[in-house]
């Protein structure tokens, strides 16, 4: 059965027809064609699908599209400034080589931005613990941890 959902994505109001079983990530990728949000697993482990919903990082593979009714969703495509200037967290990932293949990256950045809001000057351990739900197979996390620390401080400084 098709149902209608209406929500805000990256600041724009959108409505779509979905099936009851449609996942939020499927709505985002397949229907809205925002393919920066990735799918890396089927057990809610990898975090590649992380988006921001009402200001909180959530795994969009673990929610039904219907559950996002009325929500304010931001995907990786909505993070940089409209003119293309990178968000401080994105810039920190670039500067610290916090990405290789880039597949985990959107989820990492979405989670990191949420984390940094609550941790303006995080310790190494806090960052590593915050990454419990985000897997990366390329970087060994070394540079991701550095990038998130630097990104969090840059975010705090730019407030």
């Amino acid at each position: 059965m098709a149902v209608k959902v209406s929500l805000k994505v990256n600041g724009k109001s959108v409505s779509a027809e979905v099936e009851e079983r449609t996942l939020l990530v499927t709505l985002i990728r397949e229907q809205l064609r925002l393919t920066g949000t990735h799918v890396g697993c089927d057990t809610a482990q990898c975090g590649a699908c992380t988006v921001s919903m009402n200001g909180m990082a959530v795994k969009s593979c673990s929610m039904l599209a219907m559950q996002a009714e009325g929500a304010d969703v931001m995907t990786i495509e909505g993070v940089a400034k409209p003119d293309g200037t990178l968000h401080p967290m994105q810039a920190a990932f670039k500067e610290h080589h916090g990405l290789q293949c880039g597949f985990c990256t959107p989820g990492m950045v979405m989670n990191a931005i949420d984390f940094a809001k609550h941790h303006p000057n995080p310790s190494e351990q806090e960052i590593r613990e915050a990454l419990e739900g985000n897997l990366c197979r390329c970087t060994g996390y070394h540079n991701i941890v550095k990038a998130i620390g630097a990104g969090a401080r840059a975010m705090a400084a730019s407030k």
């Binding site: 990728r29 064609r33 925002l34 393919t35 920066g36 949000t37 990735h38 799918v39 995907t75 990786i76 495509e77 993070v79 940089a80 293309g84 990178l86 994105q90 990932f93 670039k94 500067e95 080589h97 990405l99 293949c101 880039g102 597949f103 990256t105 959107p106 950045v109």
Partner: peptide
């Protein structure tokens, strides 16, 4: 040198095979 490929990966503009329709 910072990577040329990073901008597209960081902004969700990468084109992985599943992204293609």
């Amino acid at each position: 040198v910072e990577r040329k490929e990073d901008y597209r990966f960081l902004t969700g503009a990468g084109q992985y095979t599943d992204d293609l329709e």
